[in-house]
Design a protein around this nucleic acid. Structure first.
Lengths: 152, 152
DNA sequence: GTTTCACGTACTATTTAAAGTTACATGAAA
DNA sequence: TTTCATGTAACTTTAAATAGTACGTGAAAC
Protein backbone atom coordinates (compact mmCIF):
# COMPACT_ATOMS: atom_id res chain seq x y z
CA UNK A 1 0.00 0.00 0.00
CA UNK A 2 1.39 3.33 -1.01
CA UNK A 3 1.72 5.95 1.67
CA UNK A 4 0.32 9.42 1.58
CA UNK A 5 3.05 12.05 1.85
CA UNK A 6 0.92 15.16 1.80
CA UNK A 7 1.35 16.03 5.45
CA UNK A 8 5.09 15.63 5.24
CA UNK A 9 5.11 17.66 2.03
CA UNK A 10 2.99 20.50 3.34
CA UNK A 11 5.04 20.86 6.49
CA UNK A 12 8.14 20.99 4.37
CA UNK A 13 6.68 23.74 2.21
CA UNK A 14 5.50 25.75 5.19
CA UNK A 15 8.90 25.73 6.81
CA UNK A 16 10.49 26.91 3.61
CA UNK A 17 7.96 29.74 3.45
CA UNK A 18 8.74 30.62 7.02
CA UNK A 19 12.44 30.87 6.24
CA UNK A 20 11.92 33.08 3.21
CA UNK A 21 11.55 36.82 3.66
CA UNK A 22 9.60 37.31 0.45
CA UNK A 23 6.62 35.42 -0.98
CA UNK A 24 7.49 32.13 -2.65
CA UNK A 25 5.76 31.25 -5.89
CA UNK A 26 4.10 27.92 -6.58
CA UNK A 27 6.85 27.36 -9.07
CA UNK A 28 9.58 27.94 -6.46
CA UNK A 29 7.91 25.57 -4.09
CA UNK A 30 7.21 22.99 -6.78
CA UNK A 31 10.89 22.90 -7.62
CA UNK A 32 11.80 22.35 -3.98
CA UNK A 33 9.21 19.58 -3.67
CA UNK A 34 9.96 18.12 -7.07
CA UNK A 35 6.40 18.33 -8.22
CA UNK A 36 4.09 20.47 -10.29
CA UNK A 37 3.07 24.06 -9.39
CA UNK A 38 -0.59 23.11 -9.69
CA UNK A 39 -0.15 20.42 -7.09
CA UNK A 40 1.26 23.03 -4.73
CA UNK A 41 -1.60 25.43 -5.34
CA UNK A 42 -4.13 22.71 -4.80
CA UNK A 43 -2.73 21.64 -1.51
CA UNK A 44 -2.10 25.17 -0.24
CA UNK A 45 -5.64 26.20 -1.18
CA UNK A 46 -6.95 24.35 1.86
CA UNK A 47 -4.42 26.02 4.12
CA UNK A 48 -5.34 29.42 2.76
CA UNK A 49 -9.03 28.79 3.45
CA UNK A 50 -8.09 27.77 6.96
CA UNK A 51 -6.12 31.00 7.39
CA UNK A 52 -2.63 29.56 7.77
CA UNK A 53 -1.18 31.02 4.58
CA UNK A 54 -1.91 33.91 2.24
CA UNK A 55 -1.56 34.04 -1.52
CA UNK A 56 -1.02 37.09 -3.72
CA UNK A 57 -1.31 37.34 -7.47
CA UNK A 58 0.82 39.28 -9.91
CA UNK A 59 4.36 40.59 -9.74
CA UNK A 60 6.03 39.89 -6.45
CA UNK A 61 3.16 37.59 -5.57
CA UNK A 62 3.27 34.11 -4.11
CA UNK A 63 2.73 32.42 -0.79
CA UNK A 64 3.42 33.64 2.74
CA UNK A 65 2.76 32.34 6.22
CA UNK A 66 -0.21 34.14 7.78
CA UNK A 67 0.40 33.36 11.45
CA UNK A 68 3.03 33.02 14.08
CA UNK A 69 4.68 29.62 13.75
CA UNK A 70 4.27 29.07 17.46
CA UNK A 71 0.50 29.26 16.98
CA UNK A 72 0.30 26.45 14.40
CA UNK A 73 0.50 22.79 15.37
CA UNK A 74 0.98 19.75 13.14
CA UNK A 75 -2.58 18.87 14.11
CA UNK A 76 -3.82 22.15 12.63
CA UNK A 77 -2.14 21.32 9.35
CA UNK A 78 -3.45 17.77 9.41
CA UNK A 79 -6.97 19.13 9.84
CA UNK A 80 -6.46 21.75 7.13
CA UNK A 81 -5.48 19.20 4.51
CA UNK A 82 -8.71 17.34 5.15
CA UNK A 83 -7.83 14.84 7.86
CA UNK A 84 -6.64 12.07 5.57
CA UNK A 85 -6.66 8.53 6.92
CA UNK A 86 -3.89 7.84 9.36
CA UNK A 87 -4.27 4.08 9.38
CA UNK A 88 -3.39 2.07 6.29
CA UNK A 89 -5.87 -0.64 7.17
CA UNK A 90 -9.60 -0.71 7.35
CA UNK A 91 -12.43 -3.15 7.56
CA UNK A 92 -13.41 -5.19 4.59
CA UNK A 93 -16.99 -4.06 4.96
CA UNK A 94 -18.58 -1.31 6.95
CA UNK A 95 -21.81 -2.42 8.62
CA UNK A 96 -21.31 -6.11 7.93
CA UNK A 97 -24.23 -8.48 8.41
CA UNK A 98 -21.88 -11.36 9.19
CA UNK A 99 -21.37 -11.74 12.94
CA UNK A 100 -17.90 -13.16 12.43
CA UNK A 101 -16.92 -10.03 10.63
CA UNK A 102 -18.49 -7.88 13.30
CA UNK A 103 -16.34 -9.56 15.93
CA UNK A 104 -13.21 -9.07 13.85
CA UNK A 105 -14.00 -5.45 13.09
CA UNK A 106 -14.71 -4.66 16.71
CA UNK A 107 -11.29 -5.92 17.75
CA UNK A 108 -9.46 -4.11 14.98
CA UNK A 109 -11.42 -0.89 15.36
CA UNK A 110 -10.59 -0.58 19.00
CA UNK A 111 -6.88 -0.83 18.35
CA UNK A 112 -6.95 1.54 15.43
CA UNK A 113 -9.00 4.08 17.32
CA UNK A 114 -6.46 4.15 20.12
CA UNK A 115 -3.52 4.42 17.76
CA UNK A 116 -5.17 7.32 15.96
CA UNK A 117 -5.88 9.10 19.21
CA UNK A 118 -2.25 8.72 20.17
CA UNK A 119 -1.11 10.17 16.87
CA UNK A 120 -3.43 13.15 16.97
CA UNK A 121 -2.37 13.89 20.49
CA UNK A 122 1.24 13.92 19.38
CA UNK A 123 0.46 16.15 16.44
CA UNK A 124 -1.24 18.59 18.74
CA UNK A 125 1.87 18.93 20.85
CA UNK A 126 4.24 19.92 18.05
CA UNK A 127 4.23 23.50 16.75
CA UNK A 128 5.80 24.67 13.53
CA UNK A 129 8.02 26.89 15.66
CA UNK A 130 9.49 23.76 17.20
CA UNK A 131 10.07 22.22 13.80
CA UNK A 132 11.76 25.43 12.65
CA UNK A 133 13.95 25.40 15.77
CA UNK A 134 14.93 21.81 15.06
CA UNK A 135 15.82 22.78 11.53
CA UNK A 136 18.01 25.64 12.77
CA UNK A 137 19.70 23.30 15.21
CA UNK A 138 20.49 20.92 12.36
CA UNK A 139 21.92 23.78 10.35
CA UNK A 140 24.08 24.91 13.23
CA UNK A 141 25.30 21.35 13.75
CA UNK A 142 26.47 21.34 10.16
CA UNK A 143 27.92 24.83 10.30
CA UNK A 144 25.71 26.01 7.49
CA UNK A 145 24.54 29.59 7.11
CA UNK A 146 20.87 30.39 6.82
CA UNK A 147 21.11 31.57 3.21
CA UNK A 148 22.40 28.22 2.03
CA UNK A 149 19.55 26.04 3.05
CA UNK A 150 17.47 26.64 -0.06
CA UNK A 151 16.85 23.85 -2.52
CA UNK A 152 18.19 23.52 -6.00
CA UNK B 1 -6.12 6.86 0.41
CA UNK B 2 -7.60 3.44 0.07
CA UNK B 3 -7.26 1.13 3.02
CA UNK B 4 -5.87 -2.36 3.00
CA UNK B 5 -8.45 -4.89 4.18
CA UNK B 6 -6.35 -8.01 4.03
CA UNK B 7 -5.89 -8.41 7.75
CA UNK B 8 -9.59 -7.98 8.36
CA UNK B 9 -10.35 -10.40 5.52
CA UNK B 10 -7.94 -13.09 6.64
CA UNK B 11 -9.18 -13.01 10.23
CA UNK B 12 -12.70 -13.36 8.89
CA UNK B 13 -11.75 -16.39 6.84
CA UNK B 14 -9.88 -18.01 9.70
CA UNK B 15 -12.80 -17.73 12.07
CA UNK B 16 -15.10 -19.28 9.50
CA UNK B 17 -12.66 -22.15 9.12
CA UNK B 18 -12.56 -22.54 12.87
CA UNK B 19 -16.34 -22.82 13.03
CA UNK B 20 -16.51 -25.43 10.29
CA UNK B 21 -15.97 -29.08 11.15
CA UNK B 22 -14.84 -30.05 7.68
CA UNK B 23 -12.31 -28.43 5.33
CA UNK B 24 -13.61 -25.39 3.48
CA UNK B 25 -12.67 -25.00 -0.16
CA UNK B 26 -11.28 -21.82 -1.66
CA UNK B 27 -14.56 -21.58 -3.49
CA UNK B 28 -16.58 -21.73 -0.26
CA UNK B 29 -14.44 -19.08 1.30
CA UNK B 30 -14.43 -16.92 -1.80
CA UNK B 31 -18.21 -16.88 -1.75
CA UNK B 32 -18.24 -15.85 1.90
CA UNK B 33 -15.72 -13.10 1.23
CA UNK B 34 -17.28 -12.10 -2.06
CA UNK B 35 -14.10 -12.55 -3.97
CA UNK B 36 -12.29 -14.98 -6.23
CA UNK B 37 -10.99 -18.42 -5.14
CA UNK B 38 -7.52 -17.61 -6.45
CA UNK B 39 -7.37 -14.55 -4.25
CA UNK B 40 -8.14 -16.75 -1.26
CA UNK B 41 -5.46 -19.26 -2.17
CA UNK B 42 -2.95 -16.52 -2.63
CA UNK B 43 -3.55 -15.00 0.75
CA UNK B 44 -3.79 -18.31 2.59
CA UNK B 45 -0.56 -19.53 1.01
CA UNK B 46 1.38 -17.30 3.38
CA UNK B 47 -0.51 -18.61 6.39
CA UNK B 48 0.11 -22.18 5.31
CA UNK B 49 3.84 -21.55 5.02
CA UNK B 50 3.74 -20.04 8.50
CA UNK B 51 1.96 -23.15 9.80
CA UNK B 52 -1.35 -21.60 10.80
CA UNK B 53 -3.50 -23.45 8.28
CA UNK B 54 -3.32 -26.65 6.26
CA UNK B 55 -4.53 -27.30 2.74
CA UNK B 56 -5.53 -30.61 1.18
CA UNK B 57 -6.09 -31.39 -2.45
CA UNK B 58 -8.71 -33.61 -4.04
CA UNK B 59 -12.09 -34.84 -2.89
CA UNK B 60 -12.96 -33.62 0.57
CA UNK B 61 -10.02 -31.27 0.42
CA UNK B 62 -9.83 -27.63 1.36
CA UNK B 63 -8.54 -25.50 4.20
CA UNK B 64 -8.37 -26.20 7.92
CA UNK B 65 -6.91 -24.46 10.94
CA UNK B 66 -3.65 -26.10 11.98
CA UNK B 67 -3.38 -24.84 15.57
CA UNK B 68 -5.34 -24.12 18.66
CA UNK B 69 -7.05 -20.76 18.28
CA UNK B 70 -5.78 -19.74 21.70
CA UNK B 71 -2.25 -20.08 20.38
CA UNK B 72 -2.69 -17.64 17.48
CA UNK B 73 -2.67 -13.88 17.97
CA UNK B 74 -3.69 -11.15 15.56
CA UNK B 75 -0.04 -10.22 15.54
CA UNK B 76 0.87 -13.67 14.23
CA UNK B 77 -1.54 -13.23 11.37
CA UNK B 78 -0.30 -9.73 10.68
CA UNK B 79 3.23 -11.10 10.44
CA UNK B 80 2.14 -14.01 8.26
CA UNK B 81 0.55 -11.78 5.64
CA UNK B 82 3.81 -9.91 5.27
CA UNK B 83 3.55 -7.08 7.78
CA UNK B 84 1.85 -4.59 5.52
CA UNK B 85 2.14 -0.92 6.41
CA UNK B 86 0.03 0.11 9.34
CA UNK B 87 0.37 3.82 8.84
CA UNK B 88 -1.25 5.49 5.86
CA UNK B 89 1.33 8.24 5.81
CA UNK B 90 4.97 8.27 5.12
CA UNK B 91 7.75 10.67 4.40
CA UNK B 92 8.01 12.33 1.06
CA UNK B 93 11.59 11.21 0.61
CA UNK B 94 13.72 8.71 2.38
CA UNK B 95 17.21 10.02 3.09
CA UNK B 96 16.46 13.62 2.24
CA UNK B 97 19.34 15.99 1.80
CA UNK B 98 17.16 18.94 2.74
CA UNK B 99 17.53 19.80 6.42
CA UNK B 100 14.00 21.18 6.58
CA UNK B 101 12.72 17.85 5.43
CA UNK B 102 14.90 16.04 7.94
CA UNK B 103 13.38 18.07 10.76
CA UNK B 104 9.85 17.36 9.55
CA UNK B 105 10.53 13.68 9.08
CA UNK B 106 12.07 13.33 12.51
CA UNK B 107 8.97 14.73 14.15
CA UNK B 108 6.58 12.61 12.12
CA UNK B 109 8.62 9.44 12.40
CA UNK B 110 8.68 9.57 16.14
CA UNK B 111 4.92 9.77 16.35
CA UNK B 112 4.33 7.08 13.77
CA UNK B 113 6.82 4.76 15.41
CA UNK B 114 5.00 5.05 18.71
CA UNK B 115 1.60 4.53 17.15
CA UNK B 116 2.83 1.42 15.36
CA UNK B 117 4.29 0.03 18.54
CA UNK B 118 0.97 0.57 20.27
CA UNK B 119 -0.90 -1.24 17.53
CA UNK B 120 1.42 -4.21 17.43
CA UNK B 121 1.23 -4.53 21.17
CA UNK B 122 -2.55 -4.60 20.93
CA UNK B 123 -2.46 -7.19 18.18
CA UNK B 124 -0.24 -9.35 20.30
CA UNK B 125 -2.77 -9.37 23.10
CA UNK B 126 -5.73 -10.63 21.07
CA UNK B 127 -5.98 -14.34 20.27
CA UNK B 128 -8.25 -15.87 17.69
CA UNK B 129 -9.92 -17.76 20.53
CA UNK B 130 -11.00 -14.44 21.96
CA UNK B 131 -12.37 -13.33 18.63
CA UNK B 132 -14.27 -16.60 18.33
CA UNK B 133 -15.67 -16.15 21.85
CA UNK B 134 -16.81 -12.66 20.95
CA UNK B 135 -18.49 -14.05 17.86
CA UNK B 136 -20.31 -16.68 19.93
CA UNK B 137 -21.42 -14.01 22.36
CA UNK B 138 -22.86 -12.00 19.50
CA UNK B 139 -24.71 -15.07 18.25
CA UNK B 140 -26.13 -15.76 21.69
CA UNK B 141 -27.21 -12.15 22.01
CA UNK B 142 -29.18 -12.56 18.82
CA UNK B 143 -30.56 -15.99 19.74
CA UNK B 144 -29.00 -17.57 16.69
CA UNK B 145 -27.90 -21.19 16.55
CA UNK B 146 -24.40 -22.10 15.54
CA UNK B 147 -25.44 -23.75 12.28
CA UNK B 148 -27.03 -20.60 10.97
CA UNK B 149 -24.04 -18.34 10.98
CA UNK B 150 -22.74 -19.41 7.61
CA UNK B 151 -22.73 -17.01 4.70
CA UNK B 152 -24.92 -17.24 1.61
C1' DG C 1 -3.21 50.43 -21.21
C1' DT C 2 -0.90 46.45 -22.27
C1' DT C 3 2.34 43.17 -20.99
C1' DT C 4 4.00 40.13 -17.59
C1' DC C 5 3.50 37.52 -13.69
C1' DA C 6 1.19 34.56 -10.46
C1' DC C 7 -2.63 32.32 -8.50
C1' DG C 8 -7.55 29.60 -9.25
C1' DT C 9 -9.53 25.78 -11.01
C1' DA C 10 -11.92 22.73 -14.22
C1' DC C 11 -10.68 19.09 -16.94
C1' DT C 12 -7.76 15.41 -18.71
C1' DA C 13 -4.04 12.07 -18.50
C1' DT C 14 -0.80 9.12 -16.24
C1' DT C 15 0.71 6.10 -12.83
C1' DT C 16 0.42 2.56 -9.67
C1' DA C 17 -1.25 -0.84 -6.46
C1' DA C 18 -4.67 -3.97 -5.63
C1' DA C 19 -7.90 -7.22 -7.16
C1' DG C 20 -9.73 -10.24 -10.33
C1' DT C 21 -9.31 -13.72 -14.02
C1' DT C 22 -7.66 -17.34 -16.98
C1' DA C 23 -5.10 -21.27 -17.75
C1' DC C 24 -2.96 -25.11 -16.73
C1' DA C 25 -0.11 -28.19 -13.62
C1' DT C 26 -0.13 -31.25 -9.46
C1' DG C 27 -1.97 -34.54 -6.57
C1' DA C 28 -5.68 -37.04 -3.87
C1' DA C 29 -9.99 -39.49 -3.51
C1' DA C 30 -13.94 -41.72 -5.58
C1' DT D 1 -9.52 -42.73 -14.95
C1' DT D 2 -12.47 -39.23 -13.77
C1' DT D 3 -13.50 -35.65 -10.65
C1' DC D 4 -12.28 -32.42 -7.37
C1' DA D 5 -9.29 -29.24 -5.12
C1' DT D 6 -5.12 -26.72 -4.47
C1' DG D 7 -0.57 -24.20 -6.61
C1' DT D 8 0.94 -20.75 -9.28
C1' DA D 9 2.27 -18.04 -13.24
C1' DA D 10 0.72 -14.68 -16.42
C1' DC D 11 -2.40 -11.43 -17.79
C1' DT D 12 -6.34 -8.06 -17.35
C1' DT D 13 -9.18 -4.96 -15.04
C1' DT D 14 -10.20 -1.44 -11.85
C1' DA D 15 -9.89 2.35 -8.79
C1' DA D 16 -7.40 5.92 -6.48
C1' DA D 17 -4.00 9.14 -6.28
C1' DT D 18 -1.16 12.16 -8.46
C1' DA D 19 0.41 14.83 -12.22
C1' DG D 20 -0.28 17.85 -15.91
C1' DT D 21 -2.76 21.09 -19.39
C1' DA D 22 -5.38 24.94 -20.46
C1' DC D 23 -7.33 28.86 -19.64
C1' DG D 24 -9.48 32.38 -16.52
C1' DT D 25 -8.74 36.22 -12.98
C1' DG D 26 -6.42 39.87 -11.03
C1' DA D 27 -2.27 42.68 -9.67
C1' DA D 28 2.04 45.00 -10.54
C1' DA D 29 5.44 46.79 -13.85
C1' DC D 30 6.55 49.32 -17.78
Amino acid sequence: MKRDSRLSGVLHVLLHMAEADAPLTSENLARAMQTNPVVIRRILAGLRDAGFVRSEKGHGGGWTIARDLAAITMRDIYDAIGRPNLMAMGNRTEAPGCLVEQAVNAALDESFRDAEALLLDRFERVTLAELAADFHARMAARGIHAEEHVHG
